[in-house]
């Protein structure tokens, strides 16, 4: 049983497996094929879909996309 960590994803707590990367998180969320951008702890993760950046316990992750706006 892999150990888990808690992250703050789009403002909500979520438990993910230890060793989760930005890339694997997007796969887990079903967003690997969607246009989106990711910030971890306030820093933009360039090329998030291929990012091997490891998420640490307590990481604040923002996953954003484009919506209608003026």
């Amino acid at each position: 049983m892999p150990q888990s960590i808690r992250i703050l994803l789009n403002g909500q707590e979520r438990t993910v497996a230890q060793g989760t990367t930005v890339q694997s998180l997007l796969v887990e969320l079903g967003l690997s094929g969607s246009p989106c951008a990711v910030e971890v702890d306030g820093q933009l993760v360039s090329g998030a879909k291929n990012s091997a950046l490891l998420l640490g316990d307590g990481a604040a992750v923002e996953v954003v996309t484009l919506v209608g706006g003026g």
Binding site: G11, T65, V67, G68, G70
Partner: peptide, 19 residues
């Protein structure tokens, strides 16, 4: 056209995208 940047709807990830 202008668009806004907002959090992904993680509850409804099958929802249609404006894109």
């Amino acid at each position: 056209v202008t668009v806004a940047v907002r959090r992904e709807r993680l509850v409804d990830s099958q929802g249609r995208s404006i894109l």
